[in-house]
């Protein structure tokens, strides 16, 4: 069981899987990496996994974690991660496996499946036994001394248990054991690496494609230790949290723009009102075009940690 407290750093750089070459979706499958990123690098992502039986599930989602393109880009730029085309690598690595290796992987899965099924069977039998015992003791207390009760049900139960349900004794032959084995469960491992070997680290990793202005704003806010999650649910581009969203409400609804991009005033009014209604500020920001006004702007850029992003916050005036 891996430690899930986020203390253990994964092997760096770790792979970020691009689900398809056409659509840029970046996925993480390893829960340890995900908790470590959240704890140490303020990277949230969005859990998108549903239970196979409930594909329409929309709460309490699980693995995998989908990273926003901006998050993936940031991780690659910081040298923490590299992108891997999942399908390509999977096919390639699978093809390079020998039949014996594949067989052994399958055998492992089969064995794990049997293990799970056996555990489940055991606990079911235990429940049945306990239920029967309860039933017997109840009937004895109400109809005590009933001659029609036949042999002691407790004893009968114990006896049948021995013959039918006893754990397969170790001296039995493997053939007999496999005959007694329950139908194995189908195991779907959450990670493919292992059993597959992790893809090699490329010398110059491909950078995930991002919208330059939204990435600049993202990087600027991330640099200031904000947690950033996608904002579409709140009518903006990013919702910006001053700490982990599990502990804090968000402070800002953020929207990025080019320095000269025309913004409808109605959007500002609407955004400002939307934010104020939920005690947040509407934040717009973009990379300042600093050619125009020399020294001042350059000083500002240095103070901003080199991102050159300038932001404005809008709140309702209350009048």
């Amino acid at each position: 069981m891996p430690a899930l407290n986020g203390h253990t750093a994964p092997d760096l750089p770790f792979p970020v899987f691009q689900a398809s070459a056409k659509v840029e979706r970046y996925l993480l499958y390893d829960i340890n990496t995900i908790t470590w990123l959240r704890k140490n690098h303020n990277i949230l992502g969005v859990l998108i996994g549903t239970l196979p039986q409930i594909p329409q599930q929309n709460v309490f989602l699980g693995l995998p974690l989908e990273l926003q393109p901006e998050e993936a880009r940031l991780l690659v730029e910081k040298g923490l991660a590299y992108t891997v085309n999942d399908l390509d690598w999977h096919t390639k690595d699978m093809a390079s496996k020998t039949t014996t290796q594949i067989e052994s992987i399958r055998a492992d899965l089969h064995r794990d499946g049997i293990e799970v099924a056996r555990e489940l069977q055991k606990s079911k039998q235990k429940q049945t036994r306990e239920a029967l015992k309860r039933l017997c003791s109840n009937s004895f207390s109400t109809v005590s001394g009933d001659s029609a009760a036949g042999p002691d049900p407790q004893a009968q139960d114990d006896a049948s248990e021995e013959t039918l349900f006893a754990d397969p004794p170790t001296q039995e032959s493997t053939q007999a054991q496999s005959r007694l084995d329950p139908k194995p469960w189908t195991i779907t491992p959450t990670t493919s690496y292992p059993p597959l070997s992790a893809p090699p680290v490329p010398s110059s990793p491909a950078l995930p494609k991002v919208n330059p202005s939204s990435y600049a704003l993202f990087a600027h806010l991330h640099e200031k230790d904000y947690f950033i999650s996608p904002g579409i649910r709140f009518g903006c581009q990013f919702s910006v949290y001053p700490g982990d969203p599990l502990r804090f409400h968000s402070h800002f609804l953020a929207m990025s723009a080019e320095w000269d991009e025309e913004i409808d005033l109605l959007n500002l009014v609407g955004g400002g009102r939307l934010g104020t209604g939920v005690k947040k500020g509407w934040l717009i920001g973009g990379v300042e075009d600093k050619e125009e006004d020399g020294r001042d702007a350059r000083d500002k850029v240095e103070a901003d940690g080199g991102t050159g992003v300038r932001t404005f916050c809008i709140e309702w005036g209350g009048m």
Partner: peptide, 16 residues
């Protein structure tokens, strides 16, 4: 006429 306060930079919102 509607009035909105615009801040220069990141200013945390009021909790009124």
């Amino acid at each position: 006429v509607v009035y909105y306060i615009v801040h220069d930079g990141i200013v945390k919102p009021r909790q009124n």
